[in-house]
């Protein structure tokens, strides 16, 4: 797995590996490598989603300063 892989790349890579393994024409050693790589990718993707913090919506001020946007305050 590449160091600076994006989530999208990791997902695409994971899907490709699964498809390749499901075809079943990969030599066993290569299959093992792919399997390990796939498990790494899967963990990376899950971690990325699970560990991403829930964010608060921001509002960009005229001065380009992001401030927390409280929708309940603004609405009503």
């Amino acid at each position: 797995m590449k160091q600076d892989m994006t989530f999208e790349e990791a997902m695409a890579s994971l899907e490709q590996i699964v498809q390749s393994l499901e075809k079943g024409d990969v030599p066993l050693e290569q299959a093992l490598t792919q399997f390990q790589e796939g498990m790494k990718l899967s963990k990376f993707c899950q971690d990325t989603l699970n560990h991403a913090e829930k964010t608060l919506t921001q509002m960009m001020t005229e001065q380009g300063e992001p401030v927390i946007f409280d929708k309940n305050e603004e609405i009503e």
């Binding site: 699964v18 499901e22 796939g38 899967s42 899950q46 989603l49």
Partner: peptide, 15 residues
């Protein structure tokens, strides 16, 4: 992702 992981495991164990 879980599904992919399952498929991965299955495909590999099948092989």
């Amino acid at each position: 992702i879980n599904l992919l992981e399952n498929r991965l495991t299955q495909a590999f164990s099948y092989q």
